[in-house]
Structures are given as C-alpha cells and as structure tokens.
C-alpha cells in the first residue's frame, strides 16, 4: 500500500464526501422523476466537453461543465417540444454526446492527449484540488438552499408534476432547476469518480434510501447518508485492496442497495 500525504488524503475525503452526498441528494430527483438515463447522458456530455477542451488546449473540466450544463438546459425544452419524456430525450442525446467525444478525440494530434479526456471517464479522487472542493461546496450550498426554500413545491412536483401544475405550481421551472443541478453535480464529480461511475452514485443511493422509507423528507436525509457511507466504504476498500477508487465506490454502493432491497422494512408484514 502506498503512503499518501495527509493533505491529499484530507482533500480526497472532503471532496469524496461532498460529491457522494450531492450525487445522492440529487439522485432522488432522477429516480423519482424516472430520469434514469439522465445520469449517463450528462456524464458522457461532460466527457465530450472534456475532449473538446483537451483538443482546443482549454481546461477540460471547464468545458466538461459547459457541455453537461448545456445538456441539462436543453433536455427540458427539447422534451417539451418533442412531447416525449425527458428520460427518452436523454437516451437519444447519449449516443450523440459519445459520437462527439470520439470525433474530438480522433482530431487530437496524439494518443497521449486523448488519454487526458479519457481519464475523466474513470476519474481519480486523489487529484482533487482545493478549487474542486470549493465548487462542490458552492453546489452543495445551492442545492440545500433550493431544497430548503422550495421544499413544499419540490415535494409537490416530485409527487406528481401535473397535479402540482393543477395547484398553480410552475412544475416545468422546478423540473428544469432539478435538471440543471443534476448537470452541475455530474460535471463536478467527474474528476473524482469518473463519468462511467458517477451514474451509480446518483442512482444507487437514492434507490437505497427509497427502499428504507415512505416519507420523502426522510428519503432526502437518508440518501446523502447512504452516498457518504458508499464513498467511505469504497475508499476503505480501495486502499485496503488496491482497487480503483471509482470501482470500489460502485461496489460499495451496489452492496448497500442489495442489503436495502433484501432487508427493506417496506417488505415486512405486520
């Protein structure tokens, strides 16, 4: 086992816990609004953005963020225009973003440059910088403020967007805000857990929390707790067994989900 400097370790832990709790918190939106394909659509949009950034010698994280947010901003209006669920549009946009990524990589001068973009697909929590942590902290503040200020509206939209509209709530605006936050968390978590694995952190923790409670308020507390536990367990697995960190987190979060499914109080009788 390699001995890590404490500064890197502390940054990795803070960054991972922030990303884990944020992905899980926003994952409740994705699961509840049946937008499972949004996670991988946005992560691959970010990958395409990173590839373009590398090609143009720009900061890959910044371009990844632009692509991911642009995808999030486009999903809602395109789904509205096409009269199709956002989940279907995300499924359609996923291959488009992958195609763009491969085009950008093919235009790069050498294989080494392309690897920089590809590294965003698997990520590395040990490369987290103070600015990454600052961005994640800002996004956490934005997300928790959004939930605290608009909890009753968010709850109504998550229950049934059309009924919320019938009560005078602008469902579309809240759903677009949720998509935007999802896009942002995917882009910011890429460097830590990678584009291929961020999806698991978004879907698994929220699905685990939903196995444990019927109360949406509790689900919003449980899901980030599960996300943070997944990260810590994954981090421990990774350091103990020398497995890749992203893969270890996915294994841990999948195991937690499996336990929740088996031992869910929702399936108990009496």
């Amino acid at each position: 086992m390699i001995e890590l400097p404490s500064g890197i370790l502390i940054r990795a832990l803070i960054g991972g816990l922030l990303a884990g709790s944020l992905c899980s918190l926003l994952g409740v939106f994705a699961v509840r609004l049946k937008m499972a394909s949004i996670g991988f659509c946005m992560s691959h949009a970010a990958f395409a953005g990173a590839a373009l950034g590398t090609l143009l010698a720009l900061d890959p994280l910044a371009t990844a963020m632009v692509f991911s947010l642009a995808t999030a901003a486009l999903l809602g209006p395109v789904a509205d225009k096409a009269r199709l669920p956002a989940n279907v549009i995300a499924g359609i946009m996923f291959p488009i973003t992958m195609a763009l990524a491969f085009i950008f990589i093919s235009l790069m001068p050498g294989p080494v440059v392309g690897l920089a973009a590809l590294s965003l697909l698997w990520g590395s929590v040990l490369t987290v910088s103070p600015s990454d942590i600052a961005f994640l902290a800002i996004l956490m503040a934005l997300t928790t403020s959004f939930l605290a200020l608009f909890w009753k509206e968010v709850q109504a939209v998550l229950f049934d967007p059309r009924m919320a509209e019938a009560d005078g709530i602008n469902s579309r605006a809240y759903m677009n805000a949720m998509l935007f936050l999802l896009g942002a968390v995917v882009a910011l978590s890429l460097k830590l857990v990678g584009g291929l694995l961020v999806y698991a952190l978004i879907m698994n923790s929220a699905s685990t929390a939903l196995q444990l409670s019927y109360d949406m308020k509790k689900v919003f507390f449980l899901s980030p707790a599960v996300g943070m536990t997944s990260f810590l367990a994954g981090f421990a697995l990774s350091t103990a067994l020398d497995w890749p960190i992203g893969s270890s987190i996915v294994v841990a979060s999948s195991l937690l989900l499996a336990f929740a499914i088996v031992f869910s109080p929702k399936r108990r009788r009496g």
């Binding site: 509840r32 009753k152 109504a156 229950f159 709530i169 019927y214 929702k266």
Partner: peptide, 18 residues
C-alpha cells in the same frame, strides 16, 4: 411504494395559498 404520507399530499393543496 409511493414515498409520501397522506398528510403531506393534503398539504400540497395549500402550497399556492401559503
């Protein structure tokens, strides 16, 4: 398996009024 309590659904009716 809908994760909402009955009282929370009823409260949703008051969202616009609040």
């Amino acid at each position: 398996d809908t994760p909402f309590l009955a009282k929370d659904i009823v409260m949703m009716g008051r969202v616009g009024r609040i």
